[in-house]
Simulated assay, not measured.
Amino acid sequence: MTGPATDPTAPASGDTPQHPRHQLVDALMHPVRFSLVAALANVEQVDFPTLRDTLQVSDSVLSRQASQLEELGIIAIRKGYVGKRPRTWMSLTQEGRSRWQAHLAALQAIAGT
């Protein structure tokens, strides 16, 4: 008995380009984290209430997802005051911008655009 037939004109397995899905950023696969990074991609920074309302999530969901992204170095969280009121602002780090662009490029490659 012989093994499966192979196409002699097909490239060797080591020569096959890797599927673009392998370039997706795992941290951005969660819908809220994806939306959060997308909201920060074209701005310098955004305050917590604006992000919460834009993403239509609860305070706890936004806080939890933002903390995970901060731990990964994708976003920066800054706390301060406006008058006597505490405020939280979020922004993408340089690494976060690079990872966002790589994730979008992988999605476009998968979609064939």
Rank of each mutant, 00 (worst) to 15 (best):
V32I: 13
A66G: 14
V57S: 00
A41N: 13
E44H: 07
T50L: 05
V37R: 05
P86L: 06
L55C: 06
N42Q: 15
V32K: 02
L72F: 10
M90R: 13
V46Y: 02
T54D: 12
V43I: 12
I75N: 12
R33C: 03
I77H: 00
S91N: 12
K84P: 12
F34H: 14
P49V: 11
G80W: 01
W89T: 09
A76I: 04
V43C: 13
S91T: 13
I75L: 13
G80Q: 08
L55F: 04
I74C: 09
S91E: 15
V32G: 01
A76S: 14
L72V: 05
T88I: 14
L69P: 06
I75C: 12
S35I: 01
A41L: 06
D47R: 08
Q45R: 14
Y81F: 15
F34P: 01
V61N: 07
I75Y: 06
I75H: 08
S91Y: 07
R78K: 10
R78Y: 04
P86G: 03
E70I: 00
T88Q: 12
P49I: 08
Q68T: 06
S60T: 10
P86H: 07
L36G: 08
M90A: 07
R78Q: 11
V57K: 02
A76W: 04
E71R: 15
Q56E: 11
S63I: 02
S63A: 13
S91M: 12
G80M: 11
T50F: 00
R85T: 03
L51T: 04
V57E: 02
M90T: 03
F48A: 01
L51F: 07
V37F: 03
V82P: 00
L72P: 01
K84L: 15
A38E: 13
V57G: 04
S63Y: 14
I77F: 01
E71F: 10
A66H: 09
V43F: 04
V46W: 02
F48W: 05
L36D: 06
S60F: 10
M90P: 00
A76Q: 14
L36I: 04
Y81M: 15
S67G: 15
S58Q: 05
V61Q: 11
E71L: 11
V32R: 08
L51N: 04
